[in-house]
Simulated scan of single mutants.
Amino acid sequence: MSLINPLSSQSPLSTQGTSGQGIAPASSSGASANSSTTTQTQTTGNPFLDGIRLPEESSIPEAKSQELTQEDFFSLLSQQLSMQDPFKPVDNDQMIAQMASFSTVDGITKLNEEIVNLNTVMTSSQALQASGLVGQKVLIPSDTGHISAEDPSLKGIISTPEAIDTITVRIEDEKGQLVKTYTVDGSAGGNIDIAWDGLDKNGEPVTSGNYSIKASGRVDGESQDLAVSTYAHVTSVSLGTASTGAILNLRGIGGIKLGDVLAVSET
């Protein structure tokens, strides 16, 4: 006679029951699988590829302004008032002084911005007005002028401190070599107009280039060099900057500030 374990007879049923109950975990596992599938739509499953994958959103925060605005000031002021000692409150005059100081600084900042904008507008307006000088000649504080086929002669002004009977004029090339010498009458004093026809001492036209006009005369019994200004042809105008203003481009010489021009001539 053999004994039968009553639990062993129930083991098939228990196994079936366990299997039956295992269906529910299977559905739960299916849900996990779906959840895993949903996650895999955002990742590849490869740690290396996921590490180098570009982020969907930029992780770099936007640059914030470092300037203290009026809202920040009042926020700090509110915090200061809320944290103050009730037995030693902040003096009203001190608080008003702080508000006035901040308003003053804010106003100065806005004024600086307006001045910069005004300088830009004035520079553009100045360049527009200076464009009317294109094609004309301007007197510049320099003794160097340009000789070319378009301008075969050179004109200028000699400034004298007093009346001088005879003024000696010397024409020199870029190397400082003497090209021609002649004299002019300076008895009228003041500004004496001079002109050079572009011919050397032999009466031959000189080559194109820059030439200097040197002048000297006897002042108080001693020979003295005199200031010379020359006329130059304006070919174009540059806008320049707010500090320099409009720039006049002169033929063969270069640029000069509009404010440095001494006079304007048609020829």
Results as ranks from 00 to 15, higher is better:
residue 59 S to M: 14
residue 35 S to M: 13
residue 76 L to M: 05
residue 4 I to D: 09
residue 141 P to G: 04
residue 185 D to N: 11
residue 23 I to Q: 10
residue 64 K to I: 14
residue 158 I to E: 04
residue 27 S to K: 07
residue 156 G to F: 08
residue 219 V to Q: 07
residue 33 A to E: 04
residue 119 N to K: 10
residue 121 V to S: 06
residue 211 Y to K: 02
residue 249 N to L: 10
residue 90 V to P: 03
residue 121 V to C: 01
residue 131 S to T: 01
residue 168 T to A: 07
residue 94 Q to R: 12
residue 231 Y to H: 01
residue 224 Q to T: 14
residue 39 T to I: 13
residue 69 T to P: 08
residue 140 I to R: 03
residue 251 R to Y: 00
residue 112 N to W: 00
residue 5 N to S: 12
residue 118 L to C: 08
residue 127 A to L: 04
residue 267 T to K: 15
residue 126 Q to L: 01
residue 215 A to R: 04
residue 244 T to A: 05
residue 154 L to Q: 09
residue 143 D to P: 15
residue 193 D to I: 00
residue 191 N to I: 02
residue 62 E to Y: 13
residue 97 A to W: 01
residue 262 L to W: 06
residue 186 G to D: 02
residue 7 L to I: 13
residue 243 S to M: 10
residue 198 G to E: 01
residue 74 F to P: 07
residue 188 A to W: 09
residue 132 G to M: 03
residue 166 T to P: 04
residue 102 F to N: 00
residue 78 S to L: 12
residue 133 L to H: 03
residue 190 G to E: 00
residue 227 A to I: 11
residue 113 E to G: 07
residue 243 S to Y: 10
residue 199 L to W: 02
residue 242 A to S: 15
residue 96 I to S: 15
residue 216 S to P: 07
residue 168 T to H: 04
residue 230 T to I: 07
residue 239 L to W: 02
residue 86 P to H: 06
residue 98 Q to C: 08
residue 200 D to F: 05
residue 120 T to N: 12
residue 93 D to S: 15
residue 252 G to D: 07
residue 54 L to P: 05
residue 192 I to T: 00
residue 29 S to E: 01
residue 249 N to V: 01
residue 122 M to H: 05
residue 46 N to P: 02
residue 56 E to N: 14
residue 82 S to I: 15
residue 192 I to Q: 09
residue 164 I to L: 11
residue 220 D to H: 13
residue 144 T to E: 02
residue 53 R to H: 15
residue 137 K to V: 04
residue 198 G to L: 10
residue 142 S to Y: 10
residue 117 N to L: 09
residue 127 A to I: 05
residue 148 S to R: 00
residue 262 L to G: 11
residue 7 L to T: 09
residue 59 S to A: 14
residue 153 S to N: 15
residue 65 S to R: 14
residue 77 L to E: 08
residue 38 T to A: 02
